[in-house]
Amino acid sequence: MGAWTVLQERQAMLLDPAIRDWVLLPIMLVMVLVGVVRHQVTVLLNGPPRKADLKSARETKGLQRGSILRAHGNHLPEYAFEARKAYLTEAFEKGTYLKDPKAGNKPKGNVMQDPAYVETMMDGMKKNMMNIVPQTVIMGWINFFFSGFVLIKLPFPLTIRFKSMLQRGIETQDMDVSWVSSLSWYFLNLFGLQSVFTLILGSGHAADAMRDMQAMSTMGMGPAAGPQMSPTGQPQDMHKIFLSEKENIELTEHEWGLNNVETRLLVKYGKLPRSILVDQKKAKAAATSVSGPSTSSLSSSSPAAVAAAAAAAGGKKKGRRQA
């Protein structure tokens, strides 16, 4: 208990202003400048936008057909949806949209010779280099020049567990965890300057650490125009992707959004109370659960019919009990 109180006393230390002038501000300045430079260099390195390959574009767009149908298919009447569903499931199965229908499973040895894949890999590598190299260099620089002394006090307390991480190089036992070394100032800057960069460079700047961390975990995701690469850097088997998309489509049921549009319109203009919609939903749920195997869900929309259906559902239940 006593030791704890000692630590809690506000440790009033004053630091040499030279530290502020020669370490605190320079580190921050360097990080800002490096971020800006990195952004410009990335823009330069990327060069003119790569010419899109016709077949690749068709492949990706073909895949999108499936997702768009699933996302917005409920705006279409049933026959339109079913027709597209049937067509797409067949097309994905047969591989109509594949870039190279006869490819099958390409033996991995040939990957390096395919120029398109090499390009995508180079792109991914370039991006990673631009992210990792500056970080490593700055960290090394800080560790070399600015270690072994206390840099700044954090205005908020932290637990003891952070002591070893934040005070690396300063081996004391009693000092507040809030007094931290230069390396932790570096990390603080790394995270805090994200929004500053967004302010200066506009969104989509190349110095985004969040994207760095994502990039480190999933390597080599090229832009949509190029051939797709899986996280491990192998060329993805598009056929498998199409097949999984096909299954997704097959599983999608059509729920026509315009089933009760008249009622919704009447409610919108205040001709009918909003509770009608709730009643309709309840009746529909009841009807589908009772009618079980018969797949056609209740689609009638008028309130009178809904009430009749609810009564019928109740009647059905009764019939079962009696029988």
Binding site: N259, L266, S299, S300, S301, S302, A305
Partner: peptide, 8 residues
């Protein structure tokens, strides 16, 4: 059954 009712 999918058509609009007279009432509506």
């Amino acid at each position: 059954s999918t058509a609009t009712s007279q009432e509506d």
